[in-house]
Design a protein around this nucleic acid. Sequence first.
DNA 1: CGCGAGCTTGACGTTGTTCAACTAGAGTGG
DNA 2: CCACTCTAGTTGAACAACGTCAAGCTCGCG
Lengths: 231, 231
Amino acid sequence: MYNTPNKRNCVDCLKRSPLFNFLTQEQLELVSKNKTEIDFKAGEIIYKQGTVINDVISLNAGMAKIYIEGLNNRDMIISFLNATHFVGGPGIFVDNKHHFSIKAVEDSSACLIDGDVFKKLIKDNHEFAYAILRFISEKSIYYFNRFISLTQKQMPGRIADAILYLSKDVYKCNPFDLNISRQEIGELSAMSTESASRILNDLQKEGVIKVKGKRIEIINENLLKEISIKG
Amino acid sequence: MYNTPNKRNCVDCLKRSPLFNFLTQEQLELVSKNKTEIDFKAGEIIYKQGTVINDVISLNAGMAKIYIEGLNNRDMIISFLNATHFVGGPGIFVDNKHHFSIKAVEDSSACLIDGDVFKKLIKDNHEFAYAILRFISEKSIYYFNRFISLTQKQMPGRIADAILYLSKDVYKCNPFDLNISRQEIGELSAMSTESASRILNDLQKEGVIKVKGKRIEIINENLLKEISIKG
DNA sequence: CGCGAGCTTGACGTTGTTCAACTAGAGTGG
DNA sequence: CCACTCTAGTTGAACAACGTCAAGCTCGCG
């Protein structure tokens, strides 16, 4: 992790989060002045759970994972981040601590925006504040779905959810090449690495998906969705 | 469920949510004009998951439960509400639909505040908007804890969490008398009714708690917390 | 060619659910 | 005052789901 000169100006940046569309040009200049663009290598930690929050981030390139460090060194992956994704942890409005960790899954670049500037923008620009409210609320709705998936579905249903999430929201294509491990698929679906591996194989035997190493292809999407719904 | 005259004025109401402390007197008058006070009998539904959001609520008296209607008619209880608790579902900022249901657990009274007025207050009063941001963020942090509890802890740890939650946050006293069923304890801890019953009994045998019908007493709080942490 | 990390597979034990029977207690009506 | 009923709660036994452990495999990489 090293700093690069802030060559990009937020005003005309194409990689910035759509949330910043609600800012005025003047406010974008303010963000520009108070941001730092940082490159992270794969595996590097961007935020560490429990530490003090100094900034919020917008991912420019690469991919990262948000995860909670749970019991007995077991992590739970909340979601993955791509370019233009914004993260302002809930702690920034509560106790100013990170309540999850973020780690680069592949080489990534992110803009770190000063937390006080972020708060000032919320106070000054109610459209932006409203967009942040909507953003956080969308997360909450996502959490509700995760709750049902993780606590009421059996393993095939949870893996189906994970595959659909990865294909639709993360990689955004159908045969997709994973840059994450089986263990991480397990952490995404609240199960052991071995179980994740087994279920993937089972789904392949049933002809729902095709798995070849890191490549996964959805063969029968309707059936996969059915498995997801039935749990 | 029937309407009662809006005798209470929000300006000097002692049962209102502390969130409203951020409003000006003028804004409180506006809320007063656009609220309806409703009594709900135990078991009556206040909000039904999937329906359109027309208002937000502040509970004046009684107790209610927020729960997600999951798979195969299995509910998952998110939290319980007491007097002065506010609820504005995440849907109000997203798709204007309720993403959970709320049901009165005992006879309750609630003020329903027009959703558009609520949104207007957020736009007009950034202190209030900020308080709502903090409020939602606190919920998110609570959800993270629930995720770890429900997906990484075994049944004794989950029941320990439920007992501590009920004692500390809901009933706010130590020997407390439940007005909820064993099934609801199960729905709070993501397990079957039978398992909830069994674990309560087990914890009693170990001398951690005392259970007599609807009454639960925490005998050894440190041990209970330890069971919670160890999972 | 060999090493090692990640992945797979099987066997086994544990955890938790389901089903069914039983019990306790709160109404209800004769 | 006593059956009767109904619901919630408890308990046991069988079963299914899932994790753990250990062994073996694959494949990229030196």
